[in-house]
């Protein structure tokens, strides 16, 4: 009966993942490997960026007239924020579908999201990346790694660490069923600062991590070290988010740009 319960939990979490995220690894890989009828529009310089802004992300850029006179770096930063906000709302819905999450103290739910969403976001971002670039605008665009590196500092430092993480993470060859459990494990984490009901969250975390372990054994029978490798990725993601939060604070201080209110409340007093 215990194994049956674990399989049910894995299935519930995978279904919640497929239902709540607009993009997933399977869709992203179909686009990145050229198996779609219309390939993504490639953004590789200022000219192609402007074209993409007029078509693919017109809604994001056009939503604020204040962006019209800003330089490319600030406009790209704004688009990154829009995508992050969309993914945070998807992650919130996903979390609510994870069995037990909605029964937690509401303040603990907030804390788990505050500390978990960026780690989850960067883990899922890897699905949209290959060594040459990143899918954007729901898969309709592809921005090259070289172009992102060529932006002026500090913006040029924003994505490169995520590419470096993604290349190592993608070599583990996880599929969406693995990622669903991994993202749930990121969110249901008992050692986030300020949690009230730690034992309740630790019990949830334990069952999700057990299910992840079991699932990896059956889904990747030839890779016996996949589970410990993934546990190490949790540590790497925490470091990646700490550095990202510092960079965002630097940009906020030194650049003439605004930070979305949802991201502001996530970053405030984070680490």
């Amino acid at each position: 009966p215990q194994v049956a319960d674990q399989k049910t939990l894995a299935k519930q979490i995978y279904e919640a993942y497929l239902k709540n995220f607009n993009m997933n690894k399977s869709k992203a890989r179909t686009i990145l490997t050229g198996k779609t009828s219309t390939p993504p529009f490639v953004i590789h310089d200022m000219e192609t960026l402007q074209l993409a802004e007029q078509t693919l992300v017109a809604k994001m850029v056009g939503s604020s007239g204040a962006l019209l006179n800003k330089d490319a770096e600030v406009r790209i930063f704004h688009c990154c924020q829009c995508t992050s906000v969309e993914t945070v709302t998807e992650l919130t819905e996903f979390a609510k579908s994870v069995p037990g999450f909605s029964n937690l103290d509401l303040n603990d739910q907030v804390t788990l999201l505050k500390y978990g969403v960026h780690e989850a976001l960067f883990a899922m971002l890897a699905s949209c990346m290959n060594k040459d670039g990143l899918l954007v605008a729901h898969g309709s665009g592809f921005i090259t790694r070289e172009f992102l590196k060529s932006l002026r500092r500090p913006f040029s430092q924003m994505m490169e660490p995520k590419f470096q993480f993604a290349m190592k993470f993608n070599s583990l060859e996880l599929d969406d069923s693995d990622l669903a459990l991994f993202v749930a494990a990121i969110i249901c984490c008992g050692d986030r600062p300020g949690l009230v009901n730690v034992p309740h969250i630790e019990r949830m975390q334990e069952s999700i991590v057990n299910v992840l372990h079991l699932h990896l054994k059956s889904n990747h029978p030839d890779n016996e070290f996949l589970f410990p490798k993934l546990l190490q990725k949790l540590v790497d993601l925490r470091q990646l988010v700490t550095e990202h939060a510092q960079l965002v604070q630097e940009i906020k201080k030194t650049e003439d740009t605004s930070l979305h209110p949802l991201l502001q409340e996530i970053y405030r007093d984070m680490y």
């Binding site: 906000v85 819905e93 907030v110």
Partner: peptide, 20 residues
């Protein structure tokens, strides 16, 4: 609670979208 009012709102009411 005031510090995280958008997260609170998202958790309590999924049908209220966040402006981009």
């Amino acid at each position: 609670k005031e510090k995280h009012k958008i997260l609170h709102r998202l958790l309590q009411n999924s049908s209220s979208p966040v402006d981009l």
